[in-house]
Design a binder for these strands. Structure first.
Length: 382
RNA sequence: GCAAGGGUGGCAGAGCGGUCAAUUGCUCCAGACUGUAAAUCUGGCGCCGAGAGGCUACGGGGGUUCGAAUCCCUCCCCUUGCA
């Protein structure tokens, strides 16, 4: 398991060797939550330049089943995806569903997370150990420890508990990871030994002190990757509208500086193209986010400056369903060379999305993914 | 021709004397979405007005009533059954 770091002009660039090929940072991974990027296939992903994927332990277990995947031969083969796959622990998903549905069967204790089993009626408990076991059976290249996210503006007591529990769970997760791979603590630090990478998650909400405590405790345990957790978790709306963006910028910069220089830093759930640029410059290396894929299905397309109907720092947005594009025969983005932009015009994509045609979701998703990959590619080679 | 049931906003379809500019769904017009329980959710949707408010509206016309989409008369049109 080899991780090489090169720092040029204050910019971090990792090369990570995995069982499924080499990864270069900065890296953006789209979310294939249920073992699929909704509405596109593996050939579309290759064509869009997707280098790695994120899937989630909880959803995979519920919808596919890790025992099944182990018997089948792993998720890579199942999905026909040859590049690295990162499995998220399920912590965020449990948090999300518990937060939305406060039923009595949904609760988190030190032992783990209980939740109502919607999908299969059976699987309804996730512990740090179970999460690692599932990720092991899935056969992912990068694994994440189970953590406990909290709403960013919650009480200090809850932030404290979340940090303490996240540390305890990280310790248990690592022990289980070592056991599953039949490794010792020394083996873990031996770069000659091939194994998946293990990521811990820094919690602490919007509190700088607790972010620091969380980071220090996790570094003490020792991981390959340190992640920024809980960023978009607000009681209201998004981070953009909910609080001064400057604060979050300050927070992610602060946390980056708490982490070892030679370890990969993973910004969970980040972000918009502007967020990616900011976070990369602030010292973060790998990212995942649902925005490009979900927004594609919601007719929100990322385009180059000057090509859309709304402008942000590094990009424009095109609300393709809006009436102004009814007769627009231009490609979605004249500066894009993706399959969609080479094949159909705005008027037709507008029609497809308005009529909820799956082909429209595919075209839109291919475009947004290509835009994101191009964007991260530009950051990498800037 | 006779009998019965209908005609409501772009469409479908509630309402059957006042709280109706009119439930609801769709369409339409916008907006949101950041480790996806999201092909989802939110707002708007007769006309004028920033607003208070005003104006025109439930097939056409007439009537009853303080007040009608709702009751009565008449005409037009649609559906079904019988000739």
């Amino acid at each position: 398991m080899k991780v090489e770091l090169e720092i040029k002009n204050c910019k971090r660039k990792f090369k990570v060797h995995t069982k499924h090929g080499e990864l270069k940072t900065p890296l953006f991974m789209p979310d294939a939550t249920y073992g699929a990027i909704t509405s596109v296939g593996s050939d579309d992903l290759r064509q869009s330049g997707v280098e790695a994927l994120v899937t989630t332990t909880l959803h995979i277990e519920q919808k596919i089943g890790s025992d099944y995947l182990e018997k089948y031969g792993g998720l890579h083969k199942f999905m026909d995806f040859k590049n690295p796959i990162l499995t998220d622990s399920g912590g965020y998903q449990v948090f999300s569903l518990i937060h939305r549905n406060k039923s009595k069967s949904n609760m988190i204790t030190d032992a783990g997370c209980s939740f109502s089993a919607e999908a299969n009626g059976k699987f309804n408990f996730l512990s740090p150990e179970i999460s690692q076991q599932i990720q092991h059976k899935i056969g992912s290249d990068i694994r994440v420890v189970l953590d406990e996210p909290v709403i960013e503006d919650t009480s200090l007591a809850k932030i404290k508990r979340s940090v303490e529990r996240t540390t305890k769970w990280a310790k248990r997760s690592k022990q289980e990871f070592l056991r599953l791979h039949d490794l010792t603590e020394n083996d873990f630090n031996n770069p000659q030994i091939e194994r998946p990478l293990l990521a811990a998650v820094v919690q602490g909400a919007n509190n700088f002190k607790y972010r620091q405590i969380s980071a220090e405790q996790l570094i003490e345990i020792g991981f390959d990757i340190y992640s920024f957790g809980g960023l978009p978790l607000h009681s209201r709306n998004s981070w953009k509208n909910d609080a001064p963006q400057g604060f979050y910028h300050e927070l992610i910069s602060y946390v980056a500086n708490l982490l070892p220089v030679d370890k990969i830093r993973y910004g969970l759930g980040i972000g918009s193209p502007d967020d990616l640029e900011y976070a990369y410059k602030a010292g973060w290396d790998i990212f995942d986010c649902v925005l490009p894929t979900r927004n594609a299905r919601h007719a929100y397309l990322y385009v180059h400056k000057g090509q859309g109907d709304r402008s942000y720092k590094t990009y424009d947005v095109l609300h393709i369903k809006n009436g102004q594009y009814q007769f627009d025969k231009n490609p979605i983005d004249a500066k894009c060379s993706c399959l969609t932009c080479k094949t159909i015009d705005r008027a037709y994509l507008r029609y497809l999305l308005r009529t909820h045609n799956p082909t429209g979701y595919r075209y839109a998703t291919i475009h947004n993914l290509t835009f994101y990959m191009q964007h991260i590619h530009n950051l990498r080679h800037a």
